[in-house]
Design a protein around this nucleic acid. Sequence first.
DNA 1: TCTGGGGTCCTAGGACCC
DNA 2: TCTGGGGTCCTAGGACCC
Length: 430
Amino acid sequence: MKQEFPIFALVDCNNFYVSCERVFNPFLTRRPAVVLSNNDGCIVARSQEVKKLGIAMGTPLFKCADLIKKQGIAVLSSNYALYGDMSRRVMQTLEQFTDRIEIYSIDEAFLRLDNLSLDNYQKYAEKIQRTVLQWTGIPVSIGVAETKTLAKVANRVAKMREDQRGVMNIVQHPDMDGILETVEIGKVWGVGRRYARMLKKNGIANARQLKYADRKWIAEKMTVVGERLLLELRGKSVIDLEQTPPPKKAICTSKSFGRPIEKKDEMHAAVTEYATRCAEKVRKQGSAASVVMVFMTTNPFKKGPQYANYKQIRLPAPCNNTREITETACSLGDQIFKPGYKYKKAGVLLTQLVSADHIQQNLFTDQVVLEKRKKITQVMDRINSLRGRDKIRLAAAGFTNPWSMKREMKSPEYTTCWAEIPVVNCRVSR
DNA sequence: TCTGGGGTCCTAGGACCC
DNA sequence: TCTGGGGTCCTAGGACCC
């Protein structure tokens, strides 16, 4: 029997960053492990064992240092080159199973699995799970349901199940309400802390209660976003797959410094670097920016004088070359930089992005200069993509940056760097 | 000592237009 | 004294996601 309604599967990698590390480091396999954010600041990924110990997502490392030591938890700095590459492998594997796929985040994808017969969803999902594990080494959980929101719910249930089979199919489930009742309201996709508090105050404490809440009241309190959520919980699919992601409307590069910055020329170097990254990203998606914004801030967690400011400017014409964007960003940075503060973080934001194919120049554009800059940028991009990031860059970015990110426990870039590729030691006995 | 980074969508309100 | 009606565009702020 074929289904008339859409069927969604949500494939979610288990403890993704930790799983990536474990693929290449067998010593981590049975050890509790965590992966840290930039600057080794917070815990952003935890193995199952660590979750059981009650260490929350986003906990600053220093707040649980004792527990980590006591429990012998392995601690790793983030290795985004590795995670990005592993993510690509997982997604490519999923694409073997359907071409209707939405890559939702680095470790999650929605698949449309319509047209299977009702009793086949479970088996098909299990096959997907086995294949991903076999081809990439990454364990995944899969939830299958009639809407994206319900697939999220199913995935959650799959992750919590004791048998760890990791597949939960709730299509036409006889006890849907019973399942929804087990999902606390704050864990529902799209209900954050604020809404969770508001809903609980009004007697809605789990997903089942939201499902049967008054639609008008929800729309009033949570806008159309909440209304859509409610419909999805009722089994009516209103959030469809987004197969080709729309181009980004804003592109941002911002980082905390490994140590505070006080000097203007150091800030200059940081802004130059961030602006360079932004320009690269914007070119990569074939866009150009109309507005450049720069912001900087001191550390709000620390005592002492605080300062935060931002400034933005509209470019004479949309632009995506590194030099012009960098010059603009640095000039903005100079305007808001005030001496006498310890800066913790700065960032560059490019907004009002337009397609690079039809940029509206103004009357005074010097076409020769424009072409020259475009060519230089293209050559820089090519060299950097072949030889590695920043092989060629603007001198203003500085050479050694003592303030740059701290990553003291990073694993090798096993899959993206020739020098760090894993070596297998074989001992042959005669 | 030590507290991440990069996005999206929706709404209200102001500026502006005819 | 009396001060329209209808629309668009933009921005800031608030909510959310991973």
